[in-house]
Structures are given as structure tokens and as C-alpha cells.
Simulated scan of single mutants.
Amino acid sequence: MTVSPAVPTDRYVPPRGWYKRNEIRVTPWLFLAPGILFFLFYVIFPVFQSFNLSLYRWDGLGEAEYVGLRNYQELATDRAFETSLWNNLKWLLLYLLAIPAGLFIALFLNQTVTGIRLYKSLFFFPFVISQVVVGLVFTWFYDPTFGLLNTILGWFGAGPIAVLGDPTLATYGIIAAGLWPQTAYCMILYLTGLNAVDPEQVEAARLDGAKGWRMLWYVIIPQLKPATFIAFVVTIIGALRSFDLISIMTNGGPFGSTRVLSFYMFEKALSEYGFRMGYGAAIAVVLFLIMLLFIAYFLWSMWREERGR
């Protein structure tokens, strides 16, 4: 009979380091650290810098002069700022049309029909082209001499319309140009959301007699809330920071009627109109606060819904 050697129960275990003890909690933050640092340096820090700069009068080269809230007081009586603010409101209200338009196009493209891949490619195309190209295409489209719009109007005996030359129509013409790619973006969001719709809920609703608008309103749209939230946030940000199309299509004209806050900020801070960096920063702060107000409202609404479940 052989006796097995005794196994020691008091082996020495070397102490574990701090990282080994907290590895599960620390490792995700190590991966997030580069992104957080970039976000702090390129987003958060410039925001606070803009707040600070808005309290100074500075041309970008000489010594900055502290003026307190005078830049904001001047904004209150600036007619060009008022026009820009109203134009931003028009952009905001009309740009939201991209969300229902994108939803209905996505519902159409989600069907199984002949040639659906071709249709998806055609509707997706505006999203991948540059805003500069979109601006040039619509500038030619609106041209009163050879543009397609006035050619079509001529077929019905209507006279040529200089959309971009009319102060009352120019802003709406630019918004229509912006809606083209923005609708495509919302369509992509909703196509992704439709892939996540629960087919069991749809089938149960069919058995209960729901179809058409009732099916869409009570079954499909509630399941698309995450996509709708992203569509709202991105569309609102896109409407408030609109710059490219205005610069390409009208350069703020005619007579400054198509200016928005971002374009007016550029004119005041960086163009030949004075290099007023502090005044431009004050406009940027107002624009940032408007964006923050809308985004905070949507975040609060979404948080309240999630909490109520």
C-alpha cells in the first residue's frame, strides 16, 4: 500500500497588483480614454473657449479687450442677427419634414418588389454626395434661363422664377435642396430600425384586425422610437448648423436674406466684414444654447419614457 504525499494547504500566494484587482472595471476606461481625451480637447474645451471669447473685442491678431456682455447687447439690436435667427427657425421647422418623408420611403423600400435594390441605390445616392455638389445641382435646377424648374413651368405657360434671386423665396429654395440628402439619411435610419421590428407583434396585430394606418401608428412607429430619436437630433443639428448650401448657392444673399446664424458668425468673425472674433463667438454661443435646448429636451423625454417602463 502506497501513501500519497500530503498536499500543502498554505502555499504562498503573491499579492496581486492594483490593476489585476480592478482589471474588469479599469480596462473599458482605458479603451475609452483616447476618445474621451479627443472629445474634451476638440469639443468641450472649444465650447468654453467660445464662451470666454464672446466677452472680448478681438480682431484675431491684436490684443483682446474685455467688454463683458456688450457683444450680447449688440446682438439684441442687430437686424441681420434677427434675420439669421428667423431663417434658422424656418430651417428647423421645414427640415423636420425629412423625418416623415424618410419614414415613408423606408416603408416603401422595405417591401419585396421587383428592382428594389435599384430603388434603394437611387434613394441612397443623395446621402453619399457632397453638400457642395448638392448646392451646385440645385443652383442649376433653379437657374431662370436654362434650369429644369423653369423649363417645366414653361410647359404650363408660367413665367420664369428666379428662386435664388428672390429674397422671399431663396431661403425656401435652399431648404428644399437640403431636404434631399437629409431625407436619404432619415431613410437609412428607418430602414435599419425596420429590420429590428418584432414580427410577432406585427402578426398579433394582424390577427386583431389591425392594418394600414392603425398598424403603422400603433405597432410599427412605437418600435421605431430609437431611430426617430436619432433622426430628430441629427436633423435639428443639421438645420441649425446649415452653412455649406448657403455659401454655395447664395453666399448669404440676396441682400442678406438667406443668412443663418452659422453663416452670419462666419461673416462677422472670419470674412472681410470686420474680423470681429468676439462678436462671432457671441453668435456661436447663442447657436450652441439653442442646440443644447432642443437636444436636452429630447434626451429628457427619452429618459422619462425609459424610466416609465
Results as ranks from 00 to 15, higher is better:
residue 10 D to F: 03
residue 50 S to E: 08
residue 141 F to A: 08
residue 196 A to G: 09
residue 210 A to I: 07
residue 45 F to V: 15
residue 102 G to P: 01
residue 76 A to I: 10
residue 164 L to H: 04
residue 128 V to L: 14
residue 86 W to V: 15
residue 48 F to C: 01
residue 49 Q to P: 05
residue 80 A to G: 10
residue 13 V to E: 09
residue 284 A to I: 04
residue 97 L to D: 03
residue 116 I to T: 13
residue 5 P to S: 13
residue 279 Y to R: 03
residue 260 V to N: 12
residue 287 L to R: 05
residue 226 P to F: 08
residue 44 I to P: 01
residue 56 Y to Q: 08
residue 221 I to W: 14
residue 22 N to M: 08
residue 238 G to L: 05
residue 89 L to Q: 09
residue 112 T to W: 13
residue 156 F to E: 03
residue 111 Q to K: 12
residue 134 V to L: 05
residue 79 R to E: 15
residue 279 Y to T: 01
residue 237 I to F: 08
residue 152 I to H: 02
residue 126 P to C: 05
residue 298 F to H: 08
residue 191 L to A: 02
residue 231 A to S: 12
residue 109 L to V: 01
residue 76 A to H: 07
residue 165 G to A: 07
residue 297 Y to D: 08
residue 57 R to W: 06
residue 195 N to F: 07
residue 231 A to H: 06
residue 221 I to L: 15
residue 283 I to G: 04
residue 35 G to A: 07
residue 143 D to K: 04
residue 172 Y to Q: 06
residue 56 Y to I: 02
residue 11 R to E: 14
residue 251 N to S: 14
residue 273 Y to T: 14
residue 121 S to P: 06
residue 178 G to R: 00
residue 74 E to K: 09
residue 85 L to Y: 07
residue 96 L to H: 15
residue 249 M to I: 01
residue 53 L to A: 12
residue 154 G to A: 14
residue 169 L to H: 00
residue 168 T to W: 09
residue 178 G to S: 08
residue 205 A to H: 04
residue 134 V to K: 08
residue 300 W to M: 10
residue 22 N to S: 06
residue 138 F to E: 01
residue 131 Q to K: 09
residue 63 E to I: 11
residue 138 F to T: 00
residue 44 I to E: 04
residue 145 T to C: 03
residue 110 N to P: 03
residue 81 F to V: 05
residue 43 V to C: 13
residue 176 A to G: 10
residue 302 M to A: 11
residue 155 W to Y: 13
residue 157 G to L: 07
residue 195 N to P: 01
residue 53 L to I: 14
residue 15 P to C: 08
residue 171 T to S: 07
residue 71 N to D: 04
residue 10 D to G: 09
residue 207 L to F: 11
residue 186 C to V: 03
residue 125 F to D: 06
residue 204 A to P: 06
residue 199 P to A: 09
residue 170 A to R: 04
residue 214 R to D: 11
residue 42 Y to H: 11
residue 131 Q to D: 12
residue 117 R to K: 13
residue 263 F to G: 02
residue 20 K to S: 15
residue 158 A to S: 14
residue 262 S to L: 14
residue 156 F to P: 00
residue 40 L to M: 12
residue 52 N to T: 12
residue 214 R to N: 11
residue 246 I to P: 02
residue 151 T to C: 02
residue 300 W to F: 14
residue 10 D to H: 11
